[in-house]
Design a protein around this nucleic acid. Structure first.
Lengths: 326, 326
DNA sequence: ACAAAAAATGAAACATGTTTCACAATATCA
DNA sequence: TGATATTGTGAAACATGTTTCATTTTTTGT
């Protein structure tokens, strides 16, 4: 593999001159430049990005830590982020934790070692200190550490209001909210708090059920949904993330419930899977584009060494009315 | 950021001794070792992976080029691959081309520059020369260059037979196959060739329609499906990738076709989206695990400098019977 | 035509971790 | 006890590209 010194030798110049041609960092006489370009072509020279990065202290790689790329929400978000990174000359390293705390910790360790220039944290199972000691630009998604780390969150409180209204207008009396973390720093839990309060005010029962998944498995969700429906036969409304909501919808229809008459379903995220089925699901739509855009902008500000104006950016949530609620 | 020299100074040893402790490459006296470990801890030293990689000519990163991570087939595959890479100390760089030839070309250029140790090519829109000149370990998926580049393919011919049988037993007379490339090097096109031949033998019409997508958009697919169903009202069977198949299923039901009586649907891939809807779709299931496993094994062999036994690995396809065929 | 400014280029140092080679200090063996 | 083997360690070189600083050559201005 040809190095810059090989090119320099072939062109009879010093390596630094080749570097200058490569980067356009200084004037080079036209003939010299031509000689060097010939040499580069002949040797099929490709600069070594590792060496370049070592000097510049920059790899051009951004890591994204997420629970699993299989979840359509994260695959959509990763797609958006990758596109934007690419446009700006960055590459995406994808790290799934699969709900394994140790994997998350290990990835954070790896990422410290100058291999990436920044991190987008779409997962947050560690103790706060693990994030605070991280020395590179980092944006957190939906987890507000309140200690200086920038965060992009959806307006889950609004989501709670929207959902409450819809459950009320659907005539529900006994609603269940499937979530994965009962923790005030996890922004999405706020959705539950609002939902609960608003439903209580309307004399509607609202229960939170935490499901920890470390396996993405639709039939697994279907089983869980069926079990829950059996255990709580009075439930007439459910709110859950897209796939889980699909599982509940399917499970409810399977045991003969009428949707939305006997049973209302609101899905959280509103990715394409809520359109794919035969029944369009009512969804609290998180705008992937807006979340991604805010994330990218904050990240690039940090990378450029700028201070960011607002540590916390809140993205609007909209309700997409479907056929699973009234 | 502390370097190995800082640690060496603090511990009063030479940098190389620190390196030896770090890598266990040579004996170090216990007291020396302890001194060094203390110094590392105090300075919060983390080795610079870029520098390390430069020396070793190895970044520990594998890139995966795919059309789009939004497609469930690729997000599932990427998930599997990432898991296996992680277990073996590698990281995944994810590159979506979004059907843009230039983006694919540019990524290949970037990946040459020592930033990655190998590439998994799940996309193949360039001229063959672009792949042949690639100087790093590369595994191609479903595209057989026949010139020495290792490839993992599903047994699309078997898929063609299975589908043909199912269309025949469903009583179809006029079948359409939605694909994205009419090219003999694209293995999945073989599925069509077999399907066509087998259906012809049974006196059934079979048409191939190429749909180039560079936007992943379910409603876009739905429009296309509706248009096609309008243009060819006699169609009574369709085979397409999961999402497109879902779109056809939905479009057909929307215009009042009975499934599977009037209209049969076979989806290709059989990811979870074929289970999520209210109707389980009949699918030709590509085994993500087997494809991923074969890919990883071949890749690691190449990375280890071993010659691989079989340049082309064919993975079985199975039919998952659903409610969209008879 | 001469001073001053500008342009072109190279030598050397640097970024950081690793390895080779040499040397000294012990340990082992006959 | 002397000879040989083993162990521990450092100096220096290396991997590759970039930058600073100095030097030479050319251009500009008067």
């Amino acid at each position: 593999m040809a190095s810059i010194r090989d090119v320099a030798n072939k062109a009879n110049v010093a390596p630094c001159t080749v570097s200058r041609v490569l980067n356009g960092t200084a004037n080079v006489a036209p003939e010299t430049k031509q000689k060097i370009e010939m040499a580069m072509k002949e040797l099929n020279y490709i600069p070594n990005e590792l060496a370049r990065g070592m000097f510049k202290q920059r790899s051009g790689i951004i890591a994204m830590l997420i629970p699993s790329i299989r979840h359509p929400y994260f695959s959509n978000l990763a797609h958006y982020i990758e596109t934007r990174l690419y446009e700006n000359g960055y590459k995406l390293m994808l790290c799934s934790t699969d709900g394994q705390i140790e994997k998350e910790r290990e990835y954070i360790r790896i990422l410290q070692s100058n291999l990436v220039d920044g991190v987008i944290m779409g997962v947050s199972d560690l103790e706060d200190a693990a994030y605070l000691q991280f020395k590179k630009p980092m944006i957190m998604l939906d987890y507000d550490l309140k200690k200086g780390i920038p965060v992009v969150v959806s307006d889950h409180e609004k989501g709670g209001y929207l959902a409450a209204n819809t459950f009320i207008s659907s005539g529900c009396k006994n609603v269940i909210h499937i979530g994965d973390k009962e923790l005030s720093k996890v922004e999405s839990y706020k959705c539950h708090k609002v939902l609960e309060r608003e439903l209580e005010r309307a004399d509607i029962k609202c229960r939170f059920v935490e499901i920890k998944w470390n396996e993405f498995d639709f039939f697994g969700y279907l089983d869980i949904a069926a079990t829950i429906l059996e255990k709580y036969p009075d439930i007439d409304g459910v709110m859950a993330a897209d796939i889980q909501a699909s599982a509940f919808l399917k499970a409810a229809l399977t045991i003969g419930k009428k949707v939305p008459e006997d049973f209302a379903v609101i899905s959280i995220d509103g990715t394409y899977v809520t359109d794919i089925g035969l029944m369009n699901m009512t969804s609290l739509v998180q705008s992937i584009d807006q979340i991604g855009d805010a994330t990218i902008k904050m990240l690039f500000n940090l990378l450029a060494g700028k201070k960011i104006a607002k540590r916390k950016v809140v993205i609007d949530i909209k309700e997409k009315k479907g056929e699973t609620t009234k």
